[in-house]
Amino acid sequence: MDFSTLTSQFGSLTFDGLVLGAIYALVALGYTLVYGVLRLINFAHSEIFMLGTYGALFATQWMHIPPFGDNRTGLSLVLTLVAVSLVAMTVSGTSAVLLERIAYRRLRRRGGSRLTALISAIGASLFLQEAIAIWRGRNYEAFPRFLEKKTLFTVFGADIRTDKLIIVVSAIAMMWALERFISRTRLGRGIRAVAQSPETSILMGVNIDRVITLTFLLGGIMAGLAGALNEVYYEQTRFSIGVILGMKAFTAAVLGGIGNLRGALLGGIVLGVVESYGGAVFGASWRDVVAFVILVLVLMFRPTGLLGETMQKARA
């Protein structure tokens, strides 16, 4: 055990954990939304994230951004980021909706059990991974760098770097927007109604298929943004990039209380920060062990996660 890194680099470790947690949280929202509405773990969600990273990559290729050396600033940087994110969100959102149509809808209509849907999810996940592996190859592809990763200022020893700040701010802004959407709009009310009781909401005239499509779309959009931010930060992707991240995001969702939007945010951030500290104290190969020990401990005392399980309670 090594506490000197933890004490001397406390600020950096915390901030890096926040950045990691912000990406986890965005992906965790997709698991939580679908679980809240359908009581289904959408295991193919990690591949929706992976497709988002490719969407972001293609966007930069269409814009002919060179691998490095083209550092954009000001308005040009903002426009590039927005364009890249929009493409990633479109790709992920569309694929999430298609995934629901192809892999889940028929099963649901014909009264398939949750287990069949789960198997269908695993199948879809493997299919998407292998399809991309065959199309793009199995090696990493590099994402170009279009912003200078420079330290803007230092807080408690943490270097606040451009890309890290962008990730944390945009992830939180997006989650705030999602929360407002679900709690304040008519469509959001539909989602909440189905989450509470699908049967009653059908009786009340809610179009359940539309609500489910919307749920997948929202989850996909969040995963797409996570994909774009992941690329800006780590600058590489490949077919299997979603596997580990998806598992972590699912963990974050359970940690915060699956089905609960604020829980996803809290779970993601707690997981990211704990991993960061755990890696510093016990060594990088123990990061995941530390994170999962924390998960088990939390679930022992709060079986429904930190904030409990229901989406209705997440209402503002």
């Binding site: 470790l13 890096d16 510093a280 990088a284 190969s285």
Partner: peptide, 17 residues
């Protein structure tokens, strides 16, 4: 002296060390 997890994307704790 430490080992990383090659499957992980993020090496921030190793960088801090």
């Amino acid at each position: 002296r430490e080992s990383i997890d090659p499957k992980a994307q993020d090496f921030s704790s190793t960088v801090a060390k």
